[in-house]
Amino acid sequence: MIRFTKVNKWYGPDHALIDIDVVIPQGEVVVVCGPSGSGKSTFLRTINRLENIQEGRILVDGTDIYDPKLNVNRFRQKIGFVFQQFNLFPHLNVLDNICCAPIKVAGKSKAQARALGLQLLERVGLEHKAQAYPQQLSGGQQQRVAIARALAMEPPIMLFDEPTSALDPEMVGEVLQVMKQLAKGGMTMVCVTHEMGFAREVADRILFMDAGRIEEDSVPDVFFANPRHPRARAFVADLSGH
């Protein structure tokens, strides 16, 4: 479903992504981990073209995402993105945050969008907050709304960029809970995260990145028990130290 072929990206002189080759089939839950600065977020953001690449090809569902005939906006409707900083729209209430894209971008009717929006709010456990404004919610609640907002476009793929890193520890659980449910429901997910408990529980695959390269690509059991790359070994050892 997502295919990276020899992808390279530079930030000026900095080689941020080096020869990325990876295929993520439909329905797979992939966790991307690694030390900071390894390029995990950059890798994730190239999938929906929030970042550009200089070399290589990225195919999503068979389409080259840099095909000049591709309508970027319509393409992005098919990919849900959840940000570390939630990025909810403060001038809209929770329900409007969730419905604004379906109405204004996908052209759904207000009634349709609201029905779906309320459904999604129920799924993330926040139906009673529909009329509240983002500033009135806790971090965990805001992130759950952000996930609902992304899901409202009914995308086949969901991308998560360190969704719990900006949260106080006691709120991490509620967000991971929503993500686990999504994973068990068969969604194709790529998550950049440090939450290894989550990875162990629901990930089908773990990509370990270091200095712009994917150094390790294996199933969780193998990765945590017996990582091959020295940096990966250090990383896993560090984790169990906590």
């Binding site: 993105f81 900083q85 729209f89």
Partner: peptide, 27 residues
């Protein structure tokens, strides 16, 4: 305005114009 606002809008599929009209300018 924090750049995350425009990014979130683009990630949802809002084009440049719609992002400006519905998300950036009001704020």
């Amino acid at each position: 305005l924090p750049p995350g606002q425009a990014e979130a809008a683009r990630a949802l599929g809002f084009g440049r114009a719609k992002t400006m009209i519905y998300i950036v300018l009001p704020q």
